[in-house]
C-alpha cells in the first residue's frame, strides 16, 4: 500500500464516492407510504394542507432607468395579498416587468429560458409608450437568461441587468434572478 498521505486519503475518498444505485422498487415503496399518508390526511382534515396567513411583499430586483439611448429595465415587482383561506404558494412564478427604451424600434419582444426562447410563438411581445417598450409576465423563481429581440431580428442584452456569459450562438443575453416573494 502506498505511504499514508494525501494520495491515500484521496484513494479512500474516491472509493467511497462511487455512486450507490438503489433498486427501482425503492421509489415505489416510498410512494406507497406517501400515498397512504396523503389518504389519511385527507380523511382527517378534509383537505390536505392548512393555509397560512398571507403577507404583502414588494421586492424590486432590477430597478434603474437611464435617460439616453436605448435603456432597459427588468423589474420584479410583487404586490400580493393572499386571503387567509388560500393555500400557501411557495416558489411560484413572480411577475417581472421587462422594459426597453428603444424609440426607433418597430417592435420589441422578450425571449429567454422562461419562455423556451420564443419558440412556438411564445415570445413576450412588448407594447410601446412613446418608445418605452414594456411587458410584464410571470417568471418562475430562479435564475434565467434572456434577451430582447428588436424588430424581429436584432438580439440585444438588457443594458441594466447583469450580463450573462454563454453567448455560444453569437447573441448577447442577460441574467435575471427572480426571488421568491413569499419569503
Amino acid at each position: 500500500m502506498a505511504e499514508w498521505g494525501r494520495t491515500t486519503l484521496e484513494m479512500i475518498v474516491q472509493d467511497l464516492q462511487r455512486p450507490v444505485v438503489l433498486d427501482e422498487s425503492f421509489e415505489r415503496r416510498v410512494m406507497v407510504r406517501v400515498r397512504r399518508l396523503y389518504a389519511q390526511q385527507r380523511k382527517r382534515k378534509g383537505r390536505a394542507w392548512v393555509a397560512i396567513s398571507g403577507t404583502i411583499a414588494h421586492r424590486p430586483a432590477w430597478a434603474a432607468l437611464i435617460a439616453a439611448g436605448i435603456v432597459a429595465i427588468a423589474t420584479a415587482g410583487v404586490l400580493k395579498a393572499r386571503p387567509q383561506s388560500a393555500p400557501i404558494t411557495v416558489g411560484g412564478p413572480e411577475p417581472v416587468k421587462f422594459v426597453l427604451v428603444a424609440p426607433g424600434a418597430m417592435s420589441v419582444a422578450v425571449v429567454g429560458d422562461f419562455n423556451n426562447w420564443g419558440l412556438n410563438d411564445s415570445a413576450l411581445v412588448a407594447t410601446s409608450n412613446q418608445g418605452v417598450w414594456s411587458v410584464t409576465a410571470p417568471v418562475p423563481v430562479g435564475v434565467h437568461r434572456y434577451a430582447f429581440v428588436v424588430n424581429g431580428k436584432q438580439w440585444m442584452a438588457d443594458p441594466t441587468a447583469p450580463r450573462s456569459s454563454g453567448d455560444d450562438f453569437g447573441m448577447p443575453s442577460s441574467a435575471l434572478v427572480v426571488e421568491d416573494s413569499t419569503k
Partner: peptide, 22 residues
Amino acid sequence: ADGELVTRVLHGDVNAYGVLVS
C-alpha cells in the same frame, strides 16, 4: 425545480413527490 415540485405536493399532487424521490 424543487420549489415548484414542493408547491405541487402541497397542493395535493402526490405524484410530484415521486419526482423528488427519484
